[in-house]
Simulated assay, not measured.
Amino acid sequence: MPNKSLDFFIFDQGQSKLLEWPKRFEILCGVARGLQYLHQDSRLRIVHRDLKASNILLDNKMNPKISDFGIAKTFGGDQTEGKTNKITGTHGYIAPEYAFKGLFSTKSDVFSFGIMVLEILSGNRSIRFHHEDHNITLIGQAWTLLNEGRPFELIDVHLRDSYNNLLQVLRCIHVGLLCVQQRPEDRPSMSSVILMLGSESELPQPKPPGYYMEIASQDRNNVSSKLESFSENTMSVTALGGR
């Protein structure tokens, strides 16, 4: 794709300055619409299972395209959940119930989307985030700041001169935390996410998120041994995405 992928912009000190807030908001809304199509409007329900910033490709107008369906699963009929003994995906994006129990559903993608929202807002990779004073993750930092009434401190410094609607930015943080709640049944559907992003209605208070604390070394090794991580540089197949 002409503009590579989302991670090329949001995690690079130089490139991140080129992706101002209005465009980031358009991208996350486009990804949300793409996921809604996969989860709800497609003939078969599709669970991507490896949604991450490097799998969001950007065309010449910076429109997002969800890519790399190599480990996607399809559900037919009334099926809403699957289970596997072989955990595949990318550490840092997969939902707790999938990482530890092998359970996956559309709500697993919702969790990954929530991670990506927090990354877009903060400019930090979820897997590499480290708080100097507390043993918490990027999710934990966002949750702590929201509860302390300081969510704006999560925002990437490169964004602070590019938005004129602070309430919209803070709303996105709130929605991101709703998506990464520990229990899948507490997470909103992607159609609800789209409504929340596009409205000014009051949002529910998120419940405690998954992966609040950093995983201890032993547990991290156990999870990593289960994962069959896919390289960010593998071949990608462009699919329908929101514009």
Rank of each mutant, 00 (worst) to 15 (best):
I71Y: 10
Y211I: 00
S5I: 03
V175M: 13
E132I: 11
G102L: 08
L28D: 00
K65I: 06
V157E: 08
V31A: 00
Q141Y: 15
A239V: 12
R150H: 10
P188F: 14
I215S: 15
M190E: 06
F104N: 05
K4V: 02
F9N: 04
I115L: 05
F69V: 07
K107T: 06
R243I: 00
R125W: 15
E20S: 13
F111E: 01
S192D: 15
D12M: 04
I215V: 12
F111K: 03
S105W: 07
E81W: 01
A72H: 00
K23Y: 09
I87A: 04
I136S: 04
S122Y: 13
S224F: 13
M190H: 03
F129T: 02
F8G: 01
S201L: 05
K101R: 11
N135K: 11
G76Q: 09
I139H: 02
N135T: 14
E228W: 01
C179T: 02
S192G: 06
L170I: 12
T137K: 02
A216C: 12
A239F: 10
M116N: 12
T234R: 11
V193A: 10
G77W: 14
S54N: 03
Y98L: 02
F111T: 02
D161M: 10
G210M: 05
T74E: 15
G82E: 04
E202F: 00
L197A: 08
G198T: 11
E185W: 05
S16V: 13
L118R: 05
T234G: 00
G77Y: 11
R33F: 11
F111P: 00
L6H: 05
T84Y: 09
T234L: 10
R187T: 08
I194F: 08
R150E: 13
P64I: 06
N55Y: 03
G198C: 08
S112K: 06
L227A: 12
L44Q: 13
V157K: 03
Q181G: 14
S112M: 05
P206K: 15
I10N: 02
D78C: 13
N164I: 08
L177G: 05
P209K: 09
F75E: 13
V180P: 04
H130P: 00
L195W: 02
P22W: 08
P208R: 15
P22R: 09
D186F: 07
G242C: 06
A142P: 07
K61S: 08
I136V: 07
L28R: 09
V180N: 01
A239T: 14
M213F: 15
V117P: 05
E119M: 07
P184F: 01
N135I: 07
C29S: 07
R243K: 10
R24N: 09
L44H: 09
K83Q: 14
I215K: 02
P22A: 07
G176F: 07
T80M: 10
I127E: 15
M196Y: 11
